[in-house]
Every structure is written in C-alpha cells, then in structure tokens.
C-alpha cells in the first residue's frame, strides 16, 4: 500500500520501468522504420552519386562520380525523344487525372450526400471496389476492356455502334498516340482515385452542422445555392488536402501502368510516367541503378515537399490528442 501511495503522490515509480515499456512498445516499429525507410532513403541518395549498374554493388558502391547521373538525366530529357515523352506523359497524366480525381470525388460525395442512405452506401462501396482489388486483377479487367483485337470490350462496343469498322489498338497504334495511351492511363487511374476524394468529402459534408443547412433551406436556398455558398466554402480545406495528397499519390504510383505496358495495352514510351521510368531503369530495361537513383532522388524531394504541405493543411496539431496523464 505504501508503495502505491508513493507511486501516486510522490511519483516515485522507477523511471527505468517507463523506459523499458516504451522500448518494448516502440522498438519493433522504430526498427522497421529505420531499416526500411530511413536507411534506404539515404542510401538511394548515395547510390545516385555512384555509377552502380546491373546490381553489381560490390564493384561500384565505392566509386563516387559526383553529379554525373543527374547530368545524364538532364541530357536525356533534352535530347532523347523517349525521355521527353516520359516527362510530357507525367505532366499530362497527372494534370488530367488529378482534376478527375478531385472533381469526380466531389461529384460522387455530393451525389451520395443528397440521396437516401441505403442507395448511397451501395454506390460508395461499389466505387471503393477498385481501390481494394489486387492490382493484377484490376489491370486484368482493363486488359479485357482495352484489348486491341475483337476480344476487347471497347472494340466490340464501338463496332456494334458503328463508330469503327476494324478493331483498334487504342493505346499502341501510332495513329492514336500519344492521346490513345494517355486516355487509357487516365481512365484506369481515375476510377481508382476518385474514391479517396469521395470518402473524405462525404464525411466532411456529413459533419456540417445540420442547423446551417436547415437555416438556409428555410431561407429558401436552392440546392445549387446550398452547395455553392454553404457546402463548398466549409469543405475548402478538405479539397486542398485531397488535391495535394492525390498529387503525391499520382506522382508515385506506377504499378497499374507497369502491367498495362508489359501487356502491350499501352505504348511503352507514351505510357511511361516518371515513377515507372525509375522502376524500369533500375529493374527491367537497362538496369542502371545510378541513373534510376538520381530519378528517384528527384521524386523523393518533390514527395517530401508535398508531404510536408499536406501535413500543414491537415493541421496535425489538432489531430494529435495529448495523452491525458502519466502516472
């Protein structure tokens, strides 16, 4: 009993107990984070200053070549048409898909907000399906859809409607490039991306005080007025957050695109984004890890910048509740 009183009123509990507990609770997570995030990040930056290729790490990791990889990368962007295609594709793909993700998410959130709940839940679940589908299956769905022969769903639809007379390969036929390839990338990624905005915006709309909406209805506001003057201003920070977060996601996602390129649904130069270029340079085509690491470092710098911006918008301090007390 005396011990407990000591602990309670004089805070005499041994400090080492808390340290041991903290080490146990945080240890595994910290270890994994350091081994697989922190060290690799610095190592990628380091590799970008070495001539590493073909994973011959023993041979090349000791050689320092300064900014040579970065110079090569910028020379490629200036003179190599394929590399320029990567840059243009990345910009176009991100700009259009981002607009679709944010505006589409907003449209879905508003539409599901204004209808009865049992109908809206069904649609929300349906639109979340692509996000939860294994990426190989999701790409397989679009493989069947965009296939360049009579097997493709799109070809069959267009043939039936009389738009085309022969099956077309939208993503690889030089006649439709680059927009054919871009259209497929935008469509496939847009359908995954809108659900993020939908969920965030929907919960933001639901948290608007009912009195506000009732009051404006009593004053005779039409639905459009309600959206324009009440709802959108109230969720404006959510819109900014979703935009930044989705920009970051689009910049770094490449797995669907990798499969569509490998399966010859989209062209390999007009269907390649910066992240995919990085991956393919390191692992698939030329296996030039020095160059890939330079491309990855540039991506990381943009990524960290956007991540910090997103954090600032989130207003993290309000999100983190302080523990009420330590005994």
């Amino acid at each position: 009993m005396a011990k407990k009183i000591n602990q309670l009123f004089f805070n005499k509990k041994p400090v080492s107990g808390k340290r041991t507990a903290l080490a146990l609770f945080l240890g595994p997570a910290l270890l994994i984070t350091i081994l697989f995030f922190v060290i690799p990040l610095f190592m990628t930056i380091y590799i970008s200053f070495t001539p590493t290729k073909n994973w011959n790490i023993q041979k090349y990791l000791g050689t320092f070549v300064g900014l040579q990889n970065y110079e090569r990368l910028f020379r490629l962007i200036t003179y190599d048409p394929d590399m320029r295609a990567v840059v243009i594709t990345t910009i176009v793909f991100i700009a259009i898909t981002l607009s679709i993700n944010v505006l589409g998410g907003l449209a879905l959130a508003l539409a599901t907000y204004f209808i009865e709940e049992r109908v809206s839940t069904t649609y929300q679940v349906l639109w979340l399906l692509p996000r939860m589908t294994p990426v190989a299956v999701y790409s397989l769905l679009w493989y069947y859809f965009f296939h360049g022969t009579k097997l493709g769903i799109l070809n069959n639809l267009l043939l039936a409607l009389g738009v085309i007379r022969e099956p077309i390969s939208l993503g690889t036929d030089p006649r439709y490039l680059p927009w054919g390839a871009w259209l497929i990338l935008i469509f496939v990624n847009g359908l995954v991306g809108v659900s993020f905005g939908m969920i965030i915006f929907y919960s933001a709309l639901k948290s608007i005080p009912r009195e506000l909406i009732i009051a404006s209805r009593v004053d005779g506001a039409s639905t459009l007025h309600l959206i324009r003057y009440i709802m959108l201003p109230l969720i404006k920070w959510h819109i900014v957050f979703v935009t930044v977060w989705q920009l970051l996601s689009l910049l770094t996602s490449y797995v669907h695109i990798l499969l569509l390129v490998e399966w010859r649904i989209v062209d390999s130069s007009w269907g390649q984004t910066w992240a995919l270029f990085t991956f393919r340079t390191a692992f698939m085509v030329v296996k030039d890890q020095g160059l890939a690491a330079a491309a990855a470092t540039i991506l990381s710098i943009i990524g960290i910048g956007l991540g910090l911006l997103a954090l600032k918008i989130l207003g993290y301090r309000e999100m983190i509740i302080e523990p009420k007390g330590d005994i």
Binding site: F36, F279, A282, A296, L311, L314
Partner: peptide, 26 residues
C-alpha cells in the same frame, strides 16, 4: 511523440519506388 506521429504520415506518402532501389541493394 508529436514529431514521430507526423513523421509516420510523411513515410506513408513517401514514393515507394525511391525506397525499393536501396532496399533491394541491401
């Protein structure tokens, strides 16, 4: 504590393709 919590959000958003080159090297 607060720093680590924010750090975790940054990590979640970090470009995976930038990590995998070094992770594979190791």
């Amino acid at each position: 504590r607060s720093f680590l919590m924010q750090f975790l959000i940054l990590l979640h958003a970090f470009p995976g393709v930038a990590l995998i080159i070094a992770v594979y090297s190791i």
